[in-house]
């Protein structure tokens, strides 16, 4: 016992230099962790640089003029046709159909889960939506081609509905995005303070009137954010359109016709043997850059809305 005490005392009374770092390795670790954190910035820069570089080569080609790119409606870079519109319109059509399916359904599901369902029902029903959200998009593609298309054909007739068509891809994409919109909207709805609901009930409003005229407007910004994320997801979705929407750019506004979207085009062309430095190769990067910028802007807007909304209630 006595010996131990003296050791303790020796340690205690040794002069301690507070300026000296006891473990120099700590700063190395901190530097490594910082690099890991900074890598994400590097990834973004790499995306912008690589897509930008190849897209620059594409637009630098003397054959590709601004007038051709936005002024004509045929896309086939291999033979000198550079009109981007067929890819853009089909992307817009499939995304619009998807949003028209997923927004009302997703919002209704969110309202039901947050305002009507008991906690027990909610915890039983939410996993179903989570399963829907976890299914790989290639499986949705199979579903679109081998279930939705035959269904549409049996309703509208085989003459009107082509085997590959934008409508079935859009509808299935809507089902795919539904869980995303419903879960984000539900978060927004349940963040509305209880006091607002109680106030409405006290005035004699029914549950429906409270939900639609009080809770929904209060959560509108969050629902807007969900809508924007949904659009961004629909624009960037690849496999469903690659399988079910058709393989070949086609300038048409008829949703029952086949037309390739921007993502579907990238998937089909890059899947084949593609030689670097060809105009086909660089054109894909130009399309990918457009996709990246559009989704980036949509995501930034959505995030801005969410941040503002959080400050309001928390």
């Amino acid at each position: 016992m006595k010996q131990e005490n003296t050791i303790m005392e020796n340690q205690l009374f040794r002069p301690l230099d507070l300026k000296k770092k006891i473990r120099p390795g700590e700063s190395v670790i901190q530097a490594l962790l910082f690099i890991a954190g900074f890598l994400s910035i590097f990834i973004t820069l790499a995306i912008v640089y690589e897509l930008g570089k190849e897209a620059w080569l594409f637009f630098g080609n003397p054959d590709v003029t601004f007038a051709k790119f936005f002024g004509t409606t045929e896309w086939s870079p291999g033979i000198g046709k550079y009109g981007i519109w067929p890819l853009v319109t089909s992307t817009l059509i499939t995304s619009t159909i998807a949003i028209f399916v997923s927004l009302p359904l997703g919002l209704a599901v969110a309202l039901f889960l947050s305002e009507y369902a008991s906690p027990k029902a909610r915890s039983a029903l939410k996993p179903i939506l989570e399963i829907l959200a976890g299914i790989p998009t290639v499986v949705y593609g199979y579903f679109a081609l081998l279930f939705m298309t035959p269904l549409l054909q049996s309703i509208f007739g085989k003459q009107t509905v082509e085997v590959y068509n934008m409508a079935s891809a859009g509808l299935v994409m809507g089902i795919m995005i539904l869980p995303l919109i419903s879960s984000m909207s539900e978060d927004a709805l349940s963040a509305v303070p209880r006091a607002l609901r109680e106030g409405a009930y006290a005035m004699g409003a029914t549950k429906f009137e409270t939900s639609i005229q009080v809770v929904l407007p209060a959560a509108l910004s969050g629902i807007g954010a969900a809508l924007i994320i949904g659009i961004s997801r629909a624009v960037g979705e690849t496999m469903i359109v690659a399988i079910a929407a058709g393989s070949g750019p086609n300038f048409t506004f008829n949703p029952f016709k086949a037309a390739e979207t921007m993502t579907g085009h990238i998937a089909r062309i890059s899947g084949g043997d593609l030689s670097y430095n060809s105009i086909d190769y660089t054109s894909l990067f130009a399309i990918a850059l457009m996709l990246f910028l559009v989704t980036l802007i949509l995501n930034l807007i959505s995030q801005g809305i969410i941040n503002k909304f959080r400050q309001r209630y928390e």
């Binding site: 990834i43 994320i229 960037g236 993502t263």
Partner: peptide
């Protein structure tokens, strides 16, 4: 960095393929 990570999570997967 934080904003960037959240945005990267929303980049279409095919863009990662191009990268």
């Amino acid at each position: 960095i934080q904003t960037n990570i959240n945005n990267l999570a929303g980049v279409p997967s095919i863009v990662y393929g191009m990268l």
